[in-house]
Computed example of a mutant assay.
Amino acid sequence: MTALATTAGLAGDTAPGRPGPGAPAPDRRLRWRSLVSRVGFVLPALVILVALLWALFPGLFTAQNPTETVAPALQAPSAEHWFGTDATGRDLYARVVYGASQSIIGALVAVLVGLVVGTAIGLAAGALGGVIDEVLMRVVDVLLAIPALLLSLSVVILLGFGTTSAAVAVGVTSIAVFARLARSRVVSVRVTDFVEAAYGSGGTFFGVLWRHILPNSLTPVIALAALQFGSAILQISTLGFLGYGAPPPTPEWGLLIAEGRNYVATDWWLTVLPGLIVVFVVLATNRLSQALRGGDAA
């Protein structure tokens, strides 16, 4: 009996649902996961906030003029010039801060263009169906078949060089992605019980579309907008690197990387530091997008 009781007691100690002798308590694990989740959300949010403040109020973060020579050329990063100076003696940190207005605001314009136009196309296709759906989706398929960089370059050449043209071009490349997602959500929401009940209670087509279908279809679209924001920064920086964005000496992140590419072997900070800023901002937007999609619940 004693052996059986001991065996039963040992089996009970390791029964499913109970922690082993050396395992941490479940509530401790939950608190740790919650802390990691909060830190993983707060840090990217702070990065995005700083980038937005750079874009809106650059004078609060640096007193240097981004287009004037303030020191000898190609000085390494120091306490006086945090990011060093470029080939003409301009403060690189000031140029990065002021360049945020070109890259960040341009990316916001690009996302707004893709979000508004793409959602409108997806909403019309999913709600109306039939021939309209087929025609709109074939147009979307054509846009998806064209590489994004090639399409953006074509639009920039048509509109002319500059940050605004680059932002519109990048926004055009994202229209198809927003349209497909919006259409799929509208099609799934359109057949739900509460939409049928809204029609049965006397709701008009446009009234139900505006009050019920559209609001219940926007959550994944907004999450996609956060993800596309990072992609737009990369594409606008790419266009600036190729010379299709803001003209010199206007600071822009892609242009700053392009200006320093000839000095990579000797003056690494000219390309590495602006490149790291782009990487941090893009990774932060991707993390926030995962949070909006409910990635923290996994």
Score class of each variant (00 low, 15 high):
Val131Ile: 14
Phe161Asp: 15
Ala125Ser: 14
Val155Cys: 05
Gly122Ala: 04
Val142Thr: 11
Leu123Phe: 15
Met137Cys: 10
Ile146Ala: 04
Met137Pro: 11
Leu128Ile: 15
Val156Asn: 06
Gly129Ile: 06
Leu158Ile: 12
Ala125Arg: 05
Pro147Trp: 05
Ser154Trp: 04
Thr119Trp: 00
Asp141Ser: 06
Met137Phe: 12
Thr119Ala: 13
Ser154Cys: 09
Ala124Lys: 01
Gly160Trp: 10
Leu150Gln: 07
Ala127Met: 12
Ile121Thr: 04
Leu149Asp: 02
Leu151Tyr: 06
Ala125Glu: 12
Glu134Gln: 15
Leu144Met: 14
Gly122Thr: 00
Ala120Leu: 15
Asp141Phe: 02
Thr119Cys: 14
Val155Ile: 15
Ile146Tyr: 03
Gly122Trp: 00
Val135Leu: 14
Gly118Phe: 05
Leu136Glu: 09
Val135Phe: 12
Ala145Ser: 14
Leu150Met: 10
Val117Ala: 14
Ile132Arg: 09
Val140Thr: 15
Ala145Pro: 06
Leu159Asp: 06
Val142Pro: 08
Leu123Glu: 00
Leu159Asn: 07
Met137Val: 09
Leu143Gln: 13
Ala125His: 10
Asp133Val: 06
Glu134Val: 14
Val117Asp: 08
Val140Arg: 01
Phe161Ser: 15
Leu153Glu: 02
Leu143Val: 02
Ala148Leu: 02
Arg138Lys: 12
Gly122Ser: 05
Leu144Glu: 06
Ser154Leu: 12
Leu123His: 02
Val155His: 02
Ile146Gln: 04
Ala124Arg: 02
Val117Gly: 07
Leu144Val: 04
Phe161Trp: 14
Arg138Gly: 09
Ala120Met: 12
Asp133Phe: 10
Ile146Met: 11
Gly118Pro: 08
Gly126Trp: 00
Gly126Leu: 02
Val131Gly: 09
Asp133His: 10
Asp133Glu: 15
Arg138Asn: 11
Gly126Asp: 01
Leu144Trp: 04
Arg138Val: 05
Val140Ala: 08
Leu136Trp: 10
Leu153Lys: 00
Leu150Tyr: 09
Ile132Phe: 11
Val135Asp: 10
Gly130Tyr: 11
Asp141Met: 03
Gly160Pro: 14
Ile146Arg: 04
Phe161Gly: 14
Leu143Arg: 02
Met137Asn: 14
Ser152Gly: 10
Asp141Pro: 06
Val139Lys: 00
Leu149Met: 12
Val140Glu: 08
Leu149Val: 15
Val139Asp: 03
Asp133Lys: 07
Val142Leu: 12
Val140Cys: 08
